[in-house]
Structure formats: structure tokens, C-alpha cells
Amino acid sequence: MRYALGVEYDGSEFHGWQRLTAHGETPPPGREPPPTLQATLEAALSSVAASPIETICAGRTDAGVHAECQVVHFDTDVQRDPRGWVLGTTSRLPPSMRIRWCVPVPGDFSARFSARARRYRYRLLNHQVRPALGRQLLAWERRPLDVDAMHRAAQQLLGERDFEAFRTVHCQAAHARRELQRLDVSRDGDIVTFTVQANAFLHHQVRNMVGSLLEVGAGLRPETWIADVLESRDRTQAGPTAPAQGLVFVGPRYPREWPLPEEVLFDA
């Protein structure tokens, strides 16, 4: 049986999503790797199943990045109803993680390859003083920001483009071509929000785009500079990488042919 899970987490205390050891490998005593979300989830699922379980996710998140609804799938011969997987697994997870839902899915469903889009949200406090409440979910920028200028500049990135200038040198993707479907910048009081959707993302792509747009918003670069950076295909021409704590993986989006909750479906 194959199951899909919706997983919510605060990534502050984790070293990113990806497991740092091979599946089932036990590191030598005293050499345990830092905690990762995948390893923590798999340990909880394996405890419920009383057998090893390996997961595949929709999109790997970096250290310090959060998720509203990460989607994973796993295969098992163990018989549990969806409610049992949700409650049993959540009870074995730290307070910073929970299972939102569990549904059985066809064997050809893939959390990664069946997704047609991924959504991120980046939020920051634009104020002279850093945030105290909610700081694990907010980045901070003390310089006054022109949100309208950032939004206009962001529209130059839409479409299927080569985003070589906006990925880290450590990115392992075979190529940098991605379809950016949405990049909106808005303000509500002192909170500035970047809403981003693409068919897929490169390593650090969202944080590098945000860091570059902040250069425009602070008046250090003209709006047209963003298009020049994109055209350069040179990471050194872009702005700095924005901090991780403001970034939330809202979740993937799948065609309605899959029996999944409404929050991850869309009309193709």
C-alpha cells in the first residue's frame, strides 16, 4: 500500500529536510549527524509500523525553512487506517512537527514527480527594530522598502527562464531552467510578503530572488537590474541570500486526478 502524508513543521531546530545518512544506516556512537526532518519523520513512521519506512517528499527544504504542508509518500505492507498513521506518527514526533492528513494513493503516485507546481511564502518585518514575537517565521529588514518597485521588478522573472544567477553553487540540479508562475510582493503594515510559485525550484532560488529584490526595494538598484541579473546567468551579479527563517514551503500542487485533500490540488 502507498500512502501520502501532509506534514507541517517548524524547521528551526532541524538541519534541513534530507536525511544525512543512508536509509537504515546507524552512525557510530558519538558521531550522530544533526537532526533532519526526513530522518525524524521516518523514525516515527517506522515506530508505528514496527518496520523500516522510507519517504519521498515533494520538495526538500533547507535548514531553518518551515512548511505548512510538505507532501510525502511511503510504501508499506503494514495495515493501519489513515487516522492511525496520523495520530500514531504525530505522537512520536517532536512538537515542531505534525501530520496534517494521511490518504491511500495509487502505486504510481509520486509526491515529487506527480507535483505540477510548488508554492513558497517569504515574510519579513520591515521595521527599525527586530521582531520578538513570531521571529522564527519572520526575517527582518530595517531599511525602508519600496514594495511597489519590488513587485514590478519581480514580474521580469516570470515565465520559463534560466535561473542560473539565482541558484547556489552547491545546487545539484542538472540545469537551471524553471517556469516561474507567480512572484508577488505585498505589504500589510510592517509585514512584507513574497508569494512565489513555480513548477520546481533550484537550491536557494527563492531566497536569492528575495535577496536581490530587497536591493531594489532599498533603492540600491533600479528595477531593470533584476532582468540584467537574470540575463547574466552569473550568481555573483545577484544580491545576497535572504535569511532562511522567513521562508515557508506552502506546499506542492497536484492535478485533480489524484485522491488528495483540496489544499494541494489545482485545476490543470
Rank of each mutant, 00 (worst) to 15 (best):
Q79H: 10
D188T: 14
E215W: 08
E13D: 12
D81T: 14
R253C: 15
W258S: 03
V169H: 06
H66Y: 06
L213W: 01
R161E: 09
R112G: 02
L133M: 11
T89H: 08
S51A: 10
Q237K: 11
R116I: 11
A173K: 00
F74T: 11
V248K: 12
R221C: 01
E257P: 06
H127I: 08
D267Y: 04
D184G: 06
A268E: 15
R118H: 07
R119C: 10
N199G: 15
G189H: 01
P240G: 06
E32T: 11
A149T: 08
T193P: 05
F74S: 02
E25P: 15
G84V: 07
R143K: 13
M97Q: 05
V103K: 04
C171L: 03
R233E: 00
G219L: 09
F113P: 09
A67E: 02
V147T: 14
Q181A: 06
G219S: 12
S91Q: 12
E263D: 15
S51R: 06
I191N: 11
F109N: 13
G219E: 09
T40P: 09
P29T: 07
R98Y: 07
Q172H: 07
D190N: 14
V196M: 13
T168W: 08
L247Y: 05
R233Q: 02
L5R: 08
R178Q: 02
L158M: 12
L145Q: 15
E13A: 11
Q136V: 13
Q245R: 15
R98M: 06
E263H: 08
T236F: 13
T36G: 11
L220V: 10
T55D: 10
R2L: 03
L158W: 06
Y122V: 05
F109S: 14
N126C: 06
Q79A: 15
C69G: 04
V229N: 03
L157E: 03
V192W: 05
D108F: 10
T90Y: 10
L157I: 04
D62S: 10
L220C: 12
M150T: 03
E160K: 11
L133K: 09
T241C: 02
S212Q: 12
G6E: 05
V210L: 00
R152D: 03
M209T: 05
L265A: 13
A154W: 08
Q197A: 11
R152F: 02
H127P: 08
T224R: 12
S91G: 12
A49T: 00
H170K: 06
R19N: 14
A176E: 00
W140H: 11
S186C: 07
M1S: 05
N199W: 06
G64K: 00
R142F: 14
D188Y: 07
C69S: 05
G88F: 08
A227H: 05
V86Y: 04
R92S: 04
E262N: 11
S96A: 07
P106L: 02
F163D: 04
H15M: 10
V105W: 05
H23N: 13
R235G: 01
L180Q: 04
A63D: 09
V78Y: 01
D146N: 05
Q205A: 01
E68G: 05
